[in-house]
Write a protein that binds this DNA or RNA. Structure first.
Lengths: 166, 166
DNA sequence: ACAATATCCGTAAGGGCTTACATTTCTTCC
DNA sequence: GGAAGAAATGTAAGCCCTTACGGATATTGT
């Protein structure tokens, strides 16, 4: 039985199209997320990486409704709603109905939340700097991601594949 | 209240380090996976994209145990085990104990599985070609991913951030 | 003014991966 | 040859997102 060690794996996946791209992207993102998470744990801070988007945006911008947070972060309102719940349970935010639109819930940092944001600021700076560092070392791989997104906007994998199937 | 439309979003995330990278990678991968999945549905084939790795490797290489599949695909044995269950339920593979090592379960395609693999071959070729196409249009963004992986192997985000925090 | 529609948000369920832990079966080494 | 450790796999639970659907509130058209 032939050996199938990592080098063969790289060869294998690089030959296998979208599954390869998708899978690699996913693994990379998990690797990065998990790493960021470890940092909070090591610092003894009760904070989860998935909270970052909502929390940081509230800190930078001030109070915002769920929908705008979702749009700004590029995720579903459901995802924001779940994070809202977790952040509220942790005492970092509160929310209230918008006076002008009863459907809307406006989220804002609590005092405790603002304190934590201040305390985490240097950590986030370090993480951001680490990301810049990493990206530089990878010769601006992020620019490639951007190009990938643009190319997908022009024509999805589905469209391309269907075109090629005819 | 300021507008926070997608252009602002791009600006925002591009400034925000690993959360941005991680999230973008994840969204991209989901976009690609979902697309590939739609293709099977449109062709009326009962096949899920997450089966691809295991299924295709069994097709290319012949029978393999769970552990080797996991190593070759770069995922956990648990993930392979779950796919195994699904593929078996769909009648596409069977498995048996390895005669020489009772701990090991060797997976192999059924006749039905082999037939499906043959039927899907052109689809996979089209998907692979679409991926190549996409990558070319994005000026070899995949090379950037490779560089990102290599850079992360040298020093994780965690290590880099901790170094910068001192 | 009021029905029809659209919008904002919430809950439930699921997808695809992971880690943590349990089980079974080698392998080693006295 | 038996105990101790290693290895292959399985199960359970969790993570972080999603879609599907439902309820409450605004808006629009007549």
């Amino acid at each position: 039985m032939a050996e199938l060690a990592p080098p063969d794996f790289r060869l294998y996946t690089s030959r296998s199209g979208p599954a390869a791209i998708g899978g690699r992207l996913r693994r990379l993102s998990e690797r990065i997320d998990r790493d960021a998470g470890k940092l909070y744990a090591e610092l003894g801070v009760r904070f989860e990486q998935r909270w970052f988007g909502v929390f940081n945006l509230l800190d930078l911008h001030g109070p915002l409704p769920v929908g705008e947070l979702a749009a700004a972060l590029g995720v579903s309102h459901v995802s924001v709603s779940q994070v809202r719940q977790a952040l509220a349970d942790a005492g970092l935010i509160t929310w209230e109905r918008d006076a002008r639109d009863g459907r809307s819930r406006v989220l804002r940092l609590t005092g405790e939340g603002a304190e934590l944001a201040a305390r985490l600021a240097p950590v986030w700076r370090a993480l951001a700097a680490a990301a810049v560092d990493l990206n530089a070392e990878a010769d601006d791989a992020l620019a490639g991601l951007e190009r990938l997104e643009t190319a997908l906007d022009r024509a999805s994998i589905l469209e391309r594949a269907k075109r090629l199937l005819e």
